[in-house]
Amino acid sequence: MISSTILRRVAVGACVLVPLSARAQNSQTAAVFLRLPASTRALALGDVYSAHGGDEAAIFYNPGQLAGADTRSAGVSVQRHIQSTALASLAAKFPLGVGVLGIGVHALDYGSADEVAADPGSGLGSPTGRTVSATDFAAAVGYAVSRGRLRAGGSLKVVRQQIAGVSGGAGAFDAGVAIAIWSDAGLALSVNNIGGRITLSGASAPLPRTARLGLASPSGKVGPVRMRAVAEVEHERERQTGIAGGAEAVWAASNFITLLGRIGASAQDESAAASLAFGGGLAIRHFALDYAYQGFSVLGVTHRVGVRWWAKRP
């Protein structure tokens, strides 16, 4: 008998992430953790990152944007999620040949709990002395090239889910393009989780295929602060189309210290996550510490912290 604690964490996570409309139609997708933010910067911007992100986290949102900056970079972020679960992401990118190679890992750990065996006589369970756990995991590798104003790329990923002794997995493909319109303004299109179905205990479901159309405004100065706005339209399999947006403010306090502020909002009201998120960051030379906050309507709040490093191409 699987621990009720683990089942409750998995069930609550699914209820938070699976839209009400899909549940009403008795139709769901697998690996709903792929909907969760994979970057601290992205979370603080309302998870709007297909047109804005040119760092290593682009591997999770728009692989074409891996070629958005001629740098090497790496980052890791951790978020204490709902019901004592933990969400973490790790990514890196570096120039290779005529383009840029990116790698990334995204995981949700539901923790562990004591295993309880059913006792038909008493109707109660008894501990077995063993523990059970549940984990969702995705690993991706991608490549992107840049030609003039156009950037394009793709990535292959492996997705695995494990609950106690039951596990399943699938392969998928992401593709994305971005084009510079003027200055640093850009338009981007990406499609994630193409193909693949996960089967657990005989039940099969497709991955949450998602299409994003994003727009990033040109940077503008308000006094000493440089501002940039982003917006995105997102459509996911079996979900309503959603609109989200965000803004980032950057202030160079000195030649090697930069302060950042971010805010994001979503108009899609299909999950328990609050529509507003915010955060900030501190960059010192080639290192940055980022923070993001998001609330849930009935399940408290979550905090995400990330660390990044980058360097120009030698």
Rank of each mutant, 00 (worst) to 15 (best):
R285V: 15
I263L: 14
G306V: 09
L207A: 12
A274S: 14
N192I: 12
K221L: 14
R130H: 13
A14S: 13
L259H: 03
F173I: 13
H52V: 12
F94V: 11
Y110L: 13
P127I: 10
A170F: 01
Y49I: 11
L34D: 04
G261V: 02
A249Q: 06
G220A: 13
K157Q: 14
Q268S: 07
V141M: 12
G153H: 02
S275W: 07
A86V: 15
S126R: 14
D290F: 01
G142M: 03
E234M: 11
S204T: 15
L66Q: 06
S183C: 11
Y291M: 11
H235L: 15
Y291Q: 10
I179M: 03
R285Q: 14
V158D: 05
T128G: 08
V141A: 15
S254D: 11
L282N: 06
V145R: 01
H52F: 07
Y293M: 05
G280C: 00
A11T: 15
I82L: 13
G64W: 01
R304W: 12
I82H: 08
A272R: 05
Y49A: 15
P19Y: 07
T85D: 12
A185R: 00
L45V: 08
D119S: 13
E236Y: 08
V225K: 03
D184K: 05
A170N: 09
A22R: 05
A267R: 01
G214Y: 03
I243H: 02
G196Y: 01
V166Q: 08
R285P: 00
G202E: 08
A311V: 14
A86S: 12
R228K: 09
V10H: 04
F94D: 03
G142Y: 06
S217R: 06
L20W: 14
F256K: 08
S73I: 13
S219Y: 04
L299N: 02
G264H: 00
R41Y: 07
A24F: 13
T302N: 15
R151I: 01
G281Y: 00
V233S: 04
A74Q: 05
D70Y: 10
I243G: 08
T40M: 13
V177K: 00
F173V: 12
V191Y: 00
I243T: 10
Y143N: 04
G195P: 10
A178V: 07
S112Q: 11
G123A: 10
S21H: 01
V250I: 15
H235E: 06
L200N: 06
A30T: 02
S201D: 03
R304S: 04
G280V: 00
D47M: 11
Y61N: 09
A57N: 09
L150E: 02
G99A: 02
A274T: 12
A180S: 13
G168E: 10
Q25T: 04
T135V: 15
W309C: 12
I194R: 04
A152H: 00
S3L: 07
L289D: 01
P37N: 08
A30M: 01
A180M: 11
D55F: 06
P314D: 04
D47N: 12
L282T: 07
A283M: 10
I2P: 05
R149I: 10
A134F: 06
L96S: 06
T128R: 10
A188S: 08
L7F: 05
W310Q: 15
H303M: 14
V98D: 09
R239Q: 15
Q25P: 01
